[in-house]
Design a protein around this nucleic acid. Structure first.
Lengths: 236, 236
DNA sequence: CTTAAATTCAATCTTTAGATTTAGAACTTA
DNA sequence: TAAGTTCTAAATCTAAAGATTGAATTTAAG
């Protein structure tokens, strides 16, 4: 599934503080008809200048580098908003590193110890707009990802056990929802087409159930228990 | 890399509302010496009862089901806190579904259209404690994941550009900090050893600067702009 | 059919909250 | 030294918030 010969070669920049290693990669890639290494960079600052200047199709970024690390570098490059795709490169299959690299936008992640065929395959996949993550690393990523999700949940909720929000009725939830948008009694009454005194009744019941004394505390309780999750959830 | 013969077979429960399909999977799996299907379930409620009862090693969960969907089901099963590992199963490679399934703890995700060899491989990998996500689906996942990360960033911050919190003085930040804990004027005054009227002055200035009308809105603004980030940040 | 819960509303009352104006003291900077 | 900012504070006033009691209606559950 290589790109056809009449298309121009994809331009690659290699970022690695180890010159020998960078050269090795360069030669390896230049053997391929679809790719050409247009520059090497030994540190992050040089890399960013080169990337700004040449806007390469792909950057191969070593993660373990002195001074500024590769993760920060990826983040900086992503901020430039170019079409350049970044593939991370390290010696270790550290779950945390993989997670962070992918989180900030790396399009692939490969180990230096992996066969050269994998490197080329990564270039191919990423060039086609896909993500390349070997199954071993994919597995590592999800280890970390799912652990992070579990923590997030444990933090937000204590899901059913002591979530006083579960005692609210439907209407009370509606009212609380509007409170969490900073709306007054009058405003809530208008939006729900009910009288202001009714709103007050609901709000008082909410306070009782949530064991708080005023709306600010109620709103804070709601947010901390993940009440506003809906809005944050519909990010796509 | 199959498990040795002397080990007991892994026990599998198949959840699918389509009986024919469930039977197909059952026969397929029962051909393998390492696995046995101990039950089928046509809907989520039955599935959960069976899982509680038999505590299988693996659950194959169809995502597209009537009434309660598979995603919710996975979430419920995860709440049980068993060692049971869940592999999601659908007809479509929808990025959103894959993301949600993996987020809540599925250990694998495969398409019904995929070859039976993939199903067995998924069982093998997951049994060994790894994640199984075919590269096509892995790529889909990251599409969604990275988009979500980008939105999260854009949502939380507008990082430096228009954060009205930057205009607050030190004292005002202190006061706002107490407001975000749901404390009254009187309480703030006591904690800061100043008079209540002084607190009111500060709060009014805060409202001006944040362009809001009351404390609830001020607190919401602060939280949305990451004012309380300290506490939430330390999830890992 | 009866009970219980949910939703609605009124009236009354007390307490905060919030707006506005004015101003002194401390500290910084031109 | 003068001007500006920050922090402090009081006085006054209006508007909102919150507590409490009591009650009618609807709907779900037993």
């Amino acid at each position: 599934m290589r790109r056809a010969d009449f298309k121009r070669k994809s331009r690659v920049i290699v970022v690695d503080d180890n010159y020998d290693h960078a050269s090795g990669i360069r030669e390896l890639i230049n053997l391929e008809q679809d790719y050409e290494v247009i520059a090497n960079a030994g540190n992050v600052n040089v890399a960013i200048s080169l990337i700004k200047k040449y806007q390469p199709d792909i950057v191969l970024m070593d993660i373990n580098m002195p001074e500024i690390d590769g993760i920060t570098a990826i983040s900086e490059i992503e901020k430039l908003g170019l079409k350049t795709k970044i593939i991370a490169l390290t010696g270790y299959d550290d779950a945390d590193l993989i997670y962070r690299a992918m989180k900030i936008g790396a399009k692939g992640y490969i180990l230096k110890t992996m066969a050269s065929a994998q490197l080329i395959r990564a270039l191919d996949e990423v060039t086609m707009g896909k993500i390349y993550l070997p199954s071993v690393l994919c597995s590592k990523f999800f280890e970390y990802f799912q652990a992070a999700q579990r923590n997030e949940k444990a933090y937000n909720a204590a899901d059913d056990e002591e979530n006083l929000l579960n005692y609210l009725t439907n209407r009370e939830e509606e009212v609380l929802g509007l409170l969490t948008e900073g709306i007054t009694y009058k405003g809530v009454a208008q939006q729900l087409f009910i009288s202001e005194t009714t709103v007050k009744t609901h709000v008082n019941n909410i306070f009782q159930k949530l064991q708080v004394n005023d709306r600010t505390q109620a709103v804070l309780y709601a947010i901390n228990k993940g009440f506003g999750a809906r809005k944050k959830a519909k990010i796509a």
